[in-house]
């Protein structure tokens, strides 16, 4: 292949990339925009009942109202704190347990059944019991979120250790390295990307735990306000709160992906 043709393909690729990005924004944003306009028009034409379905303009007004009144800040503070505590506890316990299970197969075989049971059972169904033990409000919500978030953290840390090159482990062992050195020099660096993938999944499940936990057992926060407004039949504020949850979900997912990408970039340097 001649140099000129290589250069020209690169340029065409660049142009194509820009064009594709424009297409993505126009097409994807277009569907959402058309949907919102159709919704607004249906309400204005009286085809649907505004009390029942609200409207995009009202929903945006609702969000603005929540910002101005400071309600949003308070809710994000409460939910955010619950999220951070739950996620931190789940990370510390989940990753340590996963590493332990990856290193000691008897521990793994003994604990694995419970991990899968926790994964497939609706933890939230036990909320009456959880509320009975921890009381209504943040502690119960945090507990629910921990139980949801911990599963992928355990499983990924375990798999990360499983996938470490056994040759490397043998080298450290035969040169007299102890378990702590093995962990710091080989196991952690090699399993880091897998663990970070678990962190991303765990973040997602912690969000679910906080929002849904608040729906049932909360005394404040975004999920709680969805439930509160729904019981007041305030459709507009329910939609506004759900919109806030969606935005929060997108932001957290963006952060989690950036973290994951940074960690796998770091791995290639290894």
């Amino acid at each position: 292949m001649a140099w000129t043709s290589v250069i020209s393909t690169v340029r065409a690729d660049d142009q194509g990339k820009i064009r594709e990005r424009v297409y993505a924004v126009v097409l994807g944003g277009g569907l959402i925009f058309i949907g919102a306009v159709a919704w607004q028009l249906a309400v204005m034409a009286g085809a649907v009942d505004e009390f029942l379905t609200s409207s995009p303009v009202l929903v945006i007004e609702g969000v603005v109202k929540q910002i101005v009144s400071g309600e949003l800040l308070v809710n994000i503070g409460i939910s955010g704190l619950e999220f951070i505590v739950a996620f931190a506890v789940a990370s510390v316990f989940g990753i340590s347990l996963g590493l332990l299970m990856g290193r000691l197969r008897y521990v793994k075989y003994a604990i694995e059944p419970y991990v899968w049971l926790l994964y497939s059972s609706p933890v939230i169904a036990l909320f009456p019991l959880i509320v009975l033990i921890f009381g209504l409000g943040a502690p119960s919500v945090v507990f629910i979120a921990i139980m949801l978030a911990i599963v992928p953290l355990i499983v990924n840390a375990m798999q990360g250790v499983d996938n470490v090159d056994p040759g490397l482990i043998k080298v450290v062992e035969s040169f007299g390295g102890n378990e702590l050195q093995l962990l710091r020099k080989v196991v952690l660096p090699a399993s880091f990307p897998t663990i970070m993938a678990g962190v991303r999944l765990g973040m997602g499940r912690a969000v679910v735990g906080v929002v849904v936990g608040e729906l049932f057992a909360g005394q404040g926060g975004i999920g709680y306000s969805i439930d509160k407004y729904a019981s007041e039949l305030n459709t507009t504020q329910v939609f506004s709160s759900v919109l806030i949850v969606i935005v929060a979900g997108l932001v957290l997912n963006f952060i989690a992906r950036a973290l994951e990408r940074a960690s796998s970039g770091w791995r290639t340097d290894l």
């Binding site: 594709e20 994807g28 569907l31 679910v208 459709t235 329910v238 949850v245 969606i246 997912n253």
Partner: peptide, 30 residues
């Protein structure tokens, strides 16, 4: 089809990262 994907991806992505049970109160209202 890339174009089909571009149309639906943002909506789907928003749905994927949102705890869908947060939508349930709306469904109950409807």
């Amino acid at each position: 089809r890339l174009r089909v994907r571009q149309v639906f991806e943002p909506l789907l992505y928003a749905l994927y990262v949102t705890p869908s049970l947060a939508l349930f109160p709306i469904f109950v209202l409807v």
